[in-house]
Amino acid sequence: MDYAHPEILVDVDWVEENCLKKGVRLIEVNYNPEKAYFKGHIRGATLIRWEDMIKEESYVDKAFGQAWVAGMDAYDDGLPRDILDRGEFEKLMSKHGIERDTKVILYGDHGNWFAAYAFWLFKIYNHQDTCLMNGGRTKWELDGREYVLEETQVQPTKYKVKSDSEGDFRASLDDVYDSLDAKDMRLVDIRSPEEYSGETTSSKDLGLEEMDKKGHIPGAVNVPASDTVNKDGTFKGHDELLELYKSHGVISDESVVTYCRLGERAAHSWVILRYLLGYPNVASYDGSWEEWGTARGVPIKTSCKPDGTDVNKESKPEKKSKGWGGGFWGRK
């Protein structure tokens, strides 16, 4: 069976033939560009770094009604990250020479995880013609295709966002917290089995520092991102993906929320569930373990079994308002 929305994917042949055409903007999205883009990239590609898509500043933790600032003991691994606001997103798009009708092709390192995060962000701000190059750098390199070193120069534009879909595509800490006992919600942990069980909090691919709190959000099922792709980095077929998620109880009749450590793998699986399988109610909790694992008063499970009882039930403070995103639940 074909994907529900095959139009959001292009293959490496299409990119090689069309990447320099007018109206097409090819963007490489990197977690570590020094080990990727700057060592060689597809001709015509501009660069978006991971940090270009997030805010790196203190914020008011609305979920618990307290103001957090850099250096507070409540956070183990720096401050939680927020997405670009509308104006910042417009500046990013303008910098890359993107118009409202530009066809944007995203690809990147680390299994296309961060390219998928960019895809999710572009869809939040409703840039309609956004695609992923299936397989990312992994597929391109396995095929032995050409890279270039010269950086692409583009003419800046004056991009304007017309509307956003944040409430449909994004879940907050409060959304997840308030729905832990919901019967019609499925929480999907995209991290490795070792991260899920509490052995570690760091993906081997990213080399992140360990966090003090380990485990997973109670009720979450573990469907690692690595199980959803082929060896060449391309997505597995529709039927194989559907069987994988169904085997973990993730069905289209329920609301689904994905999460990981930083939000990038969560976005990768969000793309699969929403666009490749066509699940209607899927959101990404981009705060993910960086936020949940540093927040006070949230429950954490360290058992690797779905029905395990090894749960650290912390006190549950009164919440005063919605945190990041929000508005996902009840929007069927």
Results as ranks from 00 to 15, higher is better:
142 L>A: 10
142 L>C: 07
143 D>G: 10
143 D>R: 13
146 E>Y: 07
147 Y>E: 12
147 Y>P: 07
148 V>W: 01
148 V>Y: 04
148 V>E: 06
149 L>V: 08
151 E>R: 13
151 E>P: 08
152 T>M: 10
152 T>L: 05
152 T>E: 12
152 T>V: 10
153 Q>H: 12
153 Q>A: 13
153 Q>S: 12
154 V>I: 11
154 V>T: 14
154 V>F: 13
155 Q>C: 07
155 Q>V: 14
155 Q>L: 09
156 P>T: 04
156 P>G: 06
156 P>R: 08
157 T>W: 03
157 T>R: 02
158 K>N: 15
158 K>S: 15
158 K>Y: 15
159 Y>E: 02
159 Y>D: 05
159 Y>A: 05
160 K>W: 13
161 V>Q: 05
161 V>C: 07
162 K>A: 15
162 K>F: 10
163 S>H: 10
164 D>H: 11
164 D>F: 10
164 D>Y: 10
165 S>I: 01
166 E>V: 08
169 F>V: 05
169 F>G: 00
170 R>Q: 07
170 R>Y: 10
170 R>W: 11
171 A>M: 02
172 S>T: 01
172 S>G: 15
172 S>K: 00
173 L>K: 06
173 L>S: 01
174 D>C: 07
174 D>K: 07
174 D>R: 06
174 D>L: 07
174 D>A: 08
175 D>P: 00
175 D>R: 02
176 V>K: 00
177 Y>N: 10
178 D>S: 14
178 D>Y: 11
178 D>H: 13
178 D>W: 08
178 D>E: 14
179 S>A: 15
179 S>R: 09
179 S>K: 08
180 L>I: 05
181 D>E: 12
181 D>V: 06
182 A>P: 00
184 D>T: 08
185 M>S: 03
185 M>K: 04
185 M>Y: 02
188 V>R: 03
188 V>E: 02
188 V>C: 07
189 D>I: 00
190 I>D: 05
190 I>W: 01
191 R>C: 12
191 R>P: 02
192 S>A: 09
192 S>N: 10
192 S>Y: 06
192 S>T: 15
192 S>H: 03
192 S>K: 04
192 S>I: 03
192 S>M: 09
193 P>T: 02
193 P>I: 09
193 P>A: 09
193 P>F: 12
195 E>H: 02
196 Y>F: 14
196 Y>Q: 02
197 S>R: 13
197 S>H: 05
198 G>M: 04
198 G>N: 06
199 E>I: 10
200 T>C: 07
200 T>Y: 06
200 T>V: 13
201 T>E: 02
202 S>L: 03
203 S>Y: 09
203 S>V: 08
203 S>N: 13
204 K>G: 15
205 D>L: 11
205 D>A: 14
